[in-house]
Amino acid sequence: MQCDYYDAALCRSCTLLEQPYDDQLARKVAGARAALGEGVRWELPVASAESGFRNKAKMVVAGTVEAPTLGILDGARGVDLRGCALHTPGITAALPVLAAFVTEASLTPYDVATRRGELKHVLVTDSGTALMVRFVLRSTEALARIRKHLPPLVAELGDRTVVSVNVQPEHKAVLEGEREIVLTEAGTLRMPVGDVTLHLRPQSFFQTNTAVAGALYRDAAAWVDELAVRTAWDLYCGVGGFALHLAPGRDVLGVELSGEAVASALTSRDELGLTARFQAGDAAAFVRDVEAVPDLVVVNPPRRGLGELAGLLEASGVAHVLYSSCHVGSLGRDLRAMPSLRPVKARVYDMFPHTEHHETLVMLQR
Rank of each mutant, 00 (worst) to 15 (best):
Met191Phe: 15
Gly281Cys: 03
Glu226Ile: 06
Arg145Phe: 03
Cys3Lys: 00
Glu66Gly: 08
Gly31Val: 09
Glu356Phe: 10
Asp7Gly: 14
Thr210Phe: 11
Tyr323Ile: 05
Val165Glu: 10
Leu36Ala: 11
Asp334Ile: 02
Ala263Pro: 00
Leu309Gln: 05
Phe278Asn: 01
Tyr323Cys: 07
Phe242Pro: 07
Gln2Pro: 09
Ser48Phe: 13
Pro202Glu: 10
Gly90Phe: 12
Val124Leu: 08
Ala100Ile: 05
Asp22Phe: 06
Lys120Asp: 11
Leu227Trp: 02
Val328Asp: 05
Val318Asp: 05
Pro152Arg: 13
Gly329His: 05
Arg145Ala: 15
Ser127Met: 10
Asn55Ser: 15
Glu104Val: 13
Val79Pro: 07
Ser324Trp: 00
Glu226Thr: 15
Arg250Glu: 03
Arg277Gln: 14
Val262Met: 04
Ala211Val: 14
Tyr236Gln: 07
Ala215Asn: 03
Gln203Leu: 13
Val362Pro: 00
Cys14Gln: 07
Arg77Tyr: 06
Pro169Lys: 00
His87Ile: 01
Glu308Asn: 00
Ala228Asp: 15
Gly37Ser: 02
Ala292Ile: 06
Glu226Gly: 02
Asp334Glu: 10
Gly71Tyr: 10
Glu291Phe: 06
Ala222Met: 10
Ser51Asn: 09
Pro152Leu: 11
Thr267Met: 14
Gly281Ile: 12
Arg179Ile: 02
Lys28Trp: 04
Gly241Glu: 06
Val154Gly: 02
Leu246Thr: 01
Val255Lys: 02
Pro68Cys: 00
Leu257Glu: 13
Pro68Glu: 04
Leu235Trp: 10
Arg33Pro: 04
Thr140Pro: 00
Asp219Asn: 13
Glu271Val: 15
Ser139Arg: 03
Leu266Thr: 14
Arg12Met: 06
His87Gln: 09
Tyr5Trp: 10
Ala8Ile: 03
Val328Thr: 13
Phe206Arg: 01
Leu81Ile: 01
Gly281Glu: 12
Arg303Ile: 09
